[in-house]
Design a protein around this nucleic acid. Structure first.
Lengths: 217, 217
DNA sequence: ATCAATTTGTGAAAATAATCACGACTTCTT
DNA sequence: AAGAAGTCGTGATTATTTTCACAAATTGAT
């Protein structure tokens, strides 16, 4: 696409920038510098300027960035106008957390429907999202391209195959299983146990130096 | 520490390797090649060999790696014997998911206690973990170095300050807020809304090529 | 015993990302 | 009006991570 030159590391930070700019606007701020933004999002200010620069010259020297303008620009770039419909598979604790989270408020994504195997959950709603039986997957999934996977690891492969057959192109996988998909399907893994273990490992083996960056994703 | 040369990117993958090796052992496999491991964890086989090589020559040419040996090695390296105690702050949907997740089974981390402000939850247990009132934080947190933050964003800064005062050195932050901590405290952010938005962005702007790596964290 | 098939470990190269540092321009203060 | 302070955009550098590709060693089949 037109902007294939944007580094992936930058692309991953865009939603973060967007949310903080939104907060700033709500607070009534009209301008912001890369330094202020840096303090808020914990990303080096030079990195922020570099990130923005991929989209052209959005700021003004000696002034900073106009919040309204920047926000408008990102709204277009991040397709904030165009909402991506999402399906959630597995209404356990984690799935329920998602349904209640109400991402959609400020976001370009919206969970439209959920699936579970538990008959007590099927037919109910959580956070306004209807829950269908997992067997109805193929019937209800038309037009949906993104799925959140919050099911037991053992079922991950089987359900993934069904999702892929049905045309899903992006999966946010919270299962510890590393699922296998065709080349044209994108999977992002978020492995809670690994994250926690990695944090514990870093604490023991990488004592932080003064002035070392203190947070990361 | 002694092994400060290990790249952070490698360190983040270690828990993942560990878990899959564990699975292999349970399945009764005695040997494994970097190629097989690669298929399972979706990390390039050269990257896996490079990762392992930081710890010395763990494999054997023409043979691969001995599962038992490798596992034993990682057990020591990842301190699997030595359990890291963790506190969970905020027993909402997401917090409850963690408590029920039962990470600890195969892991070097264990959630020992949880805190919440809801009087209905205080005094109960979830997944065997006792829930205390958030006001008791200072009394109960002795000796704990790692905390999982699953509270509303607005309370993140205040609670973080209290955790830091009490000596917490690592925070797994599920709050959308980017918290501010001293240099000697490590924070890993997991921002669910950002992850979902980023996935949607990648789908629209980075169409996958054939043979492009198909998954990532 | 021989040889084809495997598979590691790693030097070297390539790709990706972060950071420095400064010229150019803007705003603010007096 | 002039100078000080602030801030961007970016060339250049440095750091980090991934990938290639192949010699060396091992295995397994005949």
């Amino acid at each position: 696409m037109e902007q294939n030159k944007i580094p992936q590391a930058t692309a991953k930070r865009l939603p973060l920038y967007y949310r903080f700019l939104n907060n700033l606007q709500i607070q009534g701020k009209t301008r912001v510098s890369s330094k202020e933004l840096s303090d808020a999002v914990k990303v080096d200010s030079a990195t922020i300027r570099r990130d923005f620069s991929y989209f052209g010259a959005l700021g003004k020297k000696g002034y900073g960035y106009n919040v309204e303008y920047l926000l408008g620009f990102f709204r277009k770039t991040l397709d904030q106008d165009e909402i991506t419909d999402v399906a959630l598979i597995g209404v356990g604790n984690l799935g329920t957390a998602f349904l209640n989270y109400n991402f959609m408020k400020n976001n370009n994504t919206k969970i439209m429907l959920a699936f579970d195997a538990d008959p007590n959950k099927v037919g109910t709603e959580i956070g306004g999202v209807p829950i269908y039986h997992i067997d109805e997957l193929e019937d209800k999934l038309d037009g949906i391209k993104v799925a959140i996977l919050t099911i037991p690891a053992l079922e991950a492969d089987r359900v993934t195959d069904r999702l892929v057959s049905k045309g899903i192109k992006g999966i946010l996988n919270f299962t510890p299983a590393r699922i296998t998909v065709p080349d044209d399907v994108r999977v992002h893994h978020i492995d809670l146990a690994v994250e926690l273990q990695a944090l514990a490992y870093f604490l023991k083996h990488y004592p932080l130096e003064i002035n070392e960056p203190t947070s990361e994703q």
